[in-house]
């Protein structure tokens, strides 16, 4: 199956991004495809390359980057939501890119399922 994933919460504050990541890992392990991961609302903060948690904690941003590199996943940060929160090109970790909300609607159209992770 081809999944789209929407992440609507920032890292650490909320479980949503962790759950979305774990879902993506599990889906890929079972042979499914991830059509796109779209970051919206405070979810855009997951793309911040300056993210630096304590050393004994997971680095959520780096996890997403590594997953995207390994499986060639399209990770889109909403331009409007990103601008509001200061998440711009120069702040993006590897694998993330900025585009419009149309990419979210497109994921809804193209994927077999769009799974929303939020509050």
């Amino acid at each position: 199956m081809k999944f789209g994933i929407l992440v609507n919460e920032g890292p650490y504050q909320h479980q949503a991004s962790d759950s979305a990541y774990q879902f993506a890992v599990a889906a890929l392990a079972r042979g499914h495809q991830i059509y796109r991961v779209f970051f919206y609302n405070d979810g855009v903060n997951n793309a911040n390359k300056l993210t630096e948690p304590p050393q004994d904690d997971r680095n959520i941003t780096r996890q997403w980057s590594a997953l995207a590199a390994e499986h060639d996943i399209d990770m889109v940060v909403c331009v409007a939501a990103g601008m509001r929160r200061g998440i711009k090109d120069e702040l993006l970790a590897p694998g993330f890119h900025i585009s419009g909300l149309g990419q979210l609607i497109q994921a809804g159209i193209e994927a077999d399922r769009l799974v929303v992770f939020g509050d």
């Binding site: 919206y40 419009g100 909300l101 149309g102 979210l104 609607i105 497109q106 159209i109």
Partner: peptide, 8 residues
Amino acid sequence: VVLIGAAF
């Protein structure tokens, strides 16, 4: 999102 989606 609704407003952007309307164009689709």
